[in-house]
Every structure is written in C-alpha cells, then in structure tokens.
C-alpha cells in the first residue's frame, strides 16, 4: 500500500478519538495520539503526566515571550516537538492516523494526507461524555465547552485556518447522524476512494 496519512480533528465528546482508533485498525496502521506524549517523555526525561499538562494547550500570553522564532513557553516547545515528530514520520513514508495536533495544516504538504474533522450534536456529546467520564449533565456540558475552547485556542494559535472550519479539512462529519460505527464505515469508504485516487 502506498503512504496514507489520516488526520482526525475532533470536537470533545464527538467520538473522534475512537473513530481514529477504529480507522487505524481497519487500515492496519498505527494511531498517534497519546503515543506522541510518550515519545516526547522518552526524549525529554519528563513524565507523561508533566507533558500532558502542557499538551494541546495554547501558550499563556502574559508569562511567555517569543524572540526571533524562539519561545520560552513549554507549551509552544512541546507543540513544536509534536509537529516535528509527525512531520518526520510523514517524511519517512510511514502510514499512520494522527489525532489533533493541527495535523491537517502541519501535514498539508504531503499528498498522502486525508484530513477529517469529526463534530457532533451537543446533546449527543453530553450523553457520551456523561457515560465515559461518569459526570452529571451539567458537568459534561461544562467539560465539553472548556475542552473545545482550549483546542480552538491551541489550533488557531499555531495555524492560520480556524479550528473546525470545514474549508480546512477534506471532510467534516457529524458523528451524531450515523453513530460511531456508521461514521467509521462511511469514512472507511471515503478514505479507500481517496487512496485509490492517489495511485
């Protein structure tokens, strides 16, 4: 199989990560999400928990400064390390699925890229988050809003395009319409068609 890179952006609670994992299984390729954190932990000697604190976080403007492309913000440096890792993997010809990390923009130069964005209806996302994290309805809604706000700020800080804007992705899909399995089936067909067109 020639190279295939699947980038999955997602709203919190939309099932985007599960969809990415299922797609990786179906195409028999690795998925990079938390794995990137472990890789950086090995490289830096920090614990994965420490890196998680800074992962996919926008830099705090008041206590961070940039000079000639150098930034003292750990958030910025961890983001750059993740961008470098996925770029190196893409450059090496490896096929993989990557969740978030502005991958739809950072890997745009690779013809093997298929970029997806998974969104969902708020009521469906709340139900899912309540179940997965054992939260009340109110807590789930608050968590979704907080996480999405953070992802949006992180994305829009590192990329020119806006997070979730359909013009940035090859395909945006609402997972509430077909459910997780139905969405995966649909995306599998789409990716196969794209892979065939790439040949």
């Amino acid at each position: 199989m020639s190279q295939l890179i699947i980038s999955v952006g997602r709203e919190f609670g939309s099932g985007g990560r599960v969809i990415a994992e299922e797609l990786a299984k179906r195409f028999n390729i690795p998925v990079y999400d938390r794995h990137l954190i472990t890789e950086i932990a090995e490289k830096t000697g920090l614990t994965p928990e420490e890196i998680e604190r800074y992962n996919e976080n926008p830099k705090p403007h008041i206590i961070a400064r940039s000079v000639r492309g150098f930034s003292n913000s750990i958030e910025d440096n961890i983001a750059e390390m993740q961008f470098d890792i996925i770029d190196q993997k893409a450059k090496s010809g490896e096929s993989f699925v990557v969740v978030g990390r502005c991958s739809e923009t950072k890997l745009k130069k690779y013809p093997a890229l298929v970029s997806l964005f998974v969104l969902g209806d708020m009521n469906e996302k709340i139900k899912r988050v309540m179940k997965v994290y054992s939260l009340s309805e109110e807590e789930a809604e608050r968590l979704i809003t907080k996480k999405d706000k953070k992802r949006k700020r992180y994305h829009n800080y590192h990329c020119a395009g806006h997070w979730g804007d359909s013009r940035l992705y090859d395909l945006s899909i609402n997972s509430s319409r077909l459910g997780i399995d139905g969405t995966v089936d649909y995306l599998e067909q789409y990716i196969k068609a794209r892979a065939a067109a790439m040949k």
Partner: peptide, 24 residues
C-alpha cells in the same frame, strides 16, 4: 524571569527544543 530579556527566552527555548524544558 524567563521573559525579562531576549537572551532568557532564547536560552530557555534552546534548552526546551533539546528536551530540557525550563519552567518559570
């Protein structure tokens, strides 16, 4: 502080890029 002068930003950034992040 890490943001007080340009040298601080560059020094801490070089350290972080090489796997040695320096917090405030």
């Amino acid at each position: 502080t890490p943001i007080g002068a340009s040298a601080n930003v560059v020094g801490t950034a070089v350290a972080a890029k090489n796997g040695y992040p320096i917090s405030w």
